[in-house]
């Protein structure tokens, strides 16, 4: 179903969920949970948004059925650790590539996906100051390196 324009700020989280559908269903579940909670705050009034959110909720409930016995889904603290570890693993991969001077689409995507997953961490509560910094740095780096590669500059 097409994403209504009012909900565009959750489109990348939903795409990350699709990318992880088979690779890591727990990541997919929490990306959709974040998108659901954020979407309801953005706009659950207009008919097209409500329709979209009802479909997303249906998807979440059926994922919950499938994954219910997984501790990362049934226990928030385990889920929190799962998402945080995964986000930091992506961040560290991208950071290592960056420090080694290897600039490419994969490292850009890893920085960006790490920043999206740090957004998702907020479903478990306030982000730590460290994660807020990580998220800011990862999003900035992804944008900076992407623009450099686009203009042919060598990122510093």
């Amino acid at each position: 179903m097409a994403l209504p324009a009012q909900l565009r700020s959750i489109q990348h989280h939903l795409r990350t969920a699709q990318e992880h559908e088979n690779r890591d269903p727990v990541v997919a579940y929490y990306c959709r949970l974040y998108a659901m909670q954020t979407g309801m705050k953005l706009d659950s009034k207009t008919p097209e948004c409500r329709k979209f959110l009802v479909k997303l909720m249906d998807q979440l409930e059926s994922m919950k059925q499938e994954l219910g016995d997984n501790d990362s889904i049934s226990q928030e603290v385990v889920g929190n650790a799962h998402i945080e570890n995964y986000a930091l693993k992506m961040f560290l991969y991208a950071d290592n590539e960056d420090r080694a001077g290897r600039f490419h689409k994969n490292m850009i995507k890893s920085f960006y996906t790490a920043s999206l997953l740090l957004d998702v961490l907020s479903v478990f509560g306030e982000l730590s100051e460290e994660n807020i910094q990580h998220r800011k740095y990862a999003r900035w780096k992804a944008t900076y390196v992407h623009n450099c590669l686009k203009t042919g500059e060598t990122p510093v």
């Binding site: 659901m36 309801m40 009034k45 008919p47 409500r50 009802v54 909720m57 049934s74 928030e76």
Partner: peptide
């Protein structure tokens, strides 16, 4: 139709909120 539409909308919103709360409670 305006008021009916609004009450349908808020009923659906309430239903979404309670489904979300239920999903999270089961976690």
């Amino acid at each position: 139709t305006g008021s009916v539409g609004t009450s349908v909308a808020s009923a659906e919103q309430d239903e979404l909120s309670s489904r979300l709360a239920k999903l999270r409670d089961q976690m």
